[in-house]
Amino acid sequence: MAKIEKESTEKHEGDITCLAYYNNQVFSGGADGKIKIWDNDLNLIKNVDAHEAYIYAMAINERNGKLYSSSCDGCVKFISPPYQQTEQLFCCEDAIQAMYCDGETLYTGDEKGVVTNWVDDKIKFKYNLVEEVKSLAAEKSLIYTVRDLDVVVSDMIAGKSGKYSNKAVLPGKSPLALVGPVIDDKRTFLAFADRTGKGLSFVKNLPQQKFENVWNLPDCHELIIQAICGDEKCLYSGGYDNKVKGWTNFDQSSPKALGEVEVGNCVNALVCGANNQVYIGTSDGIVRRATFL
């Protein structure tokens, strides 16, 4: 059973483009360049004028709560608790469309295919992965990137700036997410949209399993999937069909459906909260909270 429990009483001007969750707070970034901070019940805590243009992506450092955001103006900024004012990390000519925090390490991916590794807000390495980065994740030495045809898993070579080797190339497209229980600091599964954009692929992520396929859900959405998120037990997907669907039983040959919610607008962003709750960012600028039981 799935249902919408809460809706934000205030909204962004235009689309919500990205979401993050930390310390019982929800962060939404929008086409209006603003970051809004909400409590668990979607009461607005703070409104931050973060960028002068459309926000592409956000990533949050789970250890200290520092929130990074990128915009189509080419700038990446950050804001730290108690989230009073943004500071600029850097500005460039290339759009940073994807970001990810692995512990305290930030990864940014741009439209030219360059993934930059940041430690303590300083550039450590740059990796030229050639293809535009639309979705991004990272764990230990691995970087996961995807555009429209293939998910590429790259292994960063220790001690050699910018050197990497390809570990796997999997047919699929943006978005992607690392999900499942954590074993030896690694998520056990990788989920992503298939090449049609309307189905889901689910593969094993632990090193000895060589990205073995677990299951596929072709055409599980009527239209293109825009957002994926997941936790230890559940995976959620949403997109242009205005629906968010939930799945569980990761280690079975086919997953168990947890139900779906209809939100009435295109789903642009998803993020997991607590207690089987998922927050939904849509094209009408409203944040919604759904529960999948």
Results as ranks from 00 to 15, higher is better:
94 D>S: 09
124 K>A: 15
33 G>H: 11
157 I>Q: 07
208 Q>M: 06
171 P>V: 07
153 V>T: 06
63 R>P: 02
261 V>I: 15
19 L>D: 04
289 R>P: 00
285 G>D: 11
227 A>G: 13
272 C>W: 05
213 N>D: 12
37 I>K: 04
37 I>A: 06
138 A>M: 07
64 N>S: 09
233 K>R: 08
43 N>D: 12
268 N>F: 08
237 S>A: 14
64 N>R: 05
212 E>R: 14
47 N>C: 04
257 A>S: 15
41 D>M: 02
182 V>E: 12
84 Q>A: 12
262 E>A: 06
18 C>N: 15
157 I>D: 09
119 V>P: 03
20 A>Q: 14
252 Q>F: 10
64 N>I: 07
260 E>M: 02
235 L>R: 02
2 A>G: 11
146 V>T: 13
235 L>C: 06
20 A>N: 13
284 D>N: 15
98 A>I: 06
97 Q>V: 01
222 E>K: 13
138 A>R: 05
254 S>T: 15
42 L>W: 04
248 T>W: 00
143 I>K: 05
13 E>F: 04
118 W>H: 03
15 D>K: 09
229 C>K: 00
98 A>Q: 03
15 D>E: 10
16 I>S: 07
133 V>E: 08
113 G>I: 10
289 R>I: 12
273 G>A: 09
90 F>M: 07
183 I>W: 04
265 N>G: 04
289 R>N: 11
127 Y>V: 09
14 G>H: 11
75 C>I: 02
154 S>W: 00
220 C>L: 00
287 V>R: 05
117 N>C: 15
52 E>C: 02
253 S>L: 06
144 Y>N: 06
240 Y>P: 00
112 K>N: 14
168 A>E: 06
189 F>H: 13
136 L>T: 14
199 G>V: 10
82 P>L: 01
110 D>K: 01
52 E>D: 09
166 N>P: 02
175 P>M: 00
271 V>K: 01
125 F>Q: 10
137 A>H: 06
89 L>S: 05
164 Y>N: 05
41 D>W: 03
177 A>S: 13
152 V>H: 08
141 S>R: 06
149 L>D: 14
99 M>V: 05
128 N>P: 15
248 T>E: 14
73 D>A: 09
65 G>R: 02
222 E>I: 10
96 I>G: 10
202 F>I: 08
82 P>D: 13
28 S>N: 06
191 A>P: 08
172 G>N: 07
40 N>S: 14
253 S>R: 10
209 Q>K: 12
224 I>E: 12
90 F>H: 11
276 N>T: 13
179 V>E: 07
64 N>K: 02
223 L>S: 11
41 D>F: 06
224 I>K: 10
34 K>T: 14
205 N>W: 09
202 F>C: 08
260 E>D: 11
48 V>D: 01
61 N>W: 00
218 P>N: 04
33 G>N: 07
113 G>N: 03
157 I>E: 14
188 T>P: 02
129 L>P: 07
10 E>D: 10
130 V>E: 12
272 C>Y: 02
158 A>M: 00
207 P>N: 10
18 C>E: 11
243 K>D: 04
17 T>Q: 07
142 L>C: 10
76 V>M: 08
37 I>R: 03
37 I>G: 11
225 I>N: 05
49 D>M: 06
124 K>P: 03
72 C>F: 04
275 N>E: 14
96 I>F: 01
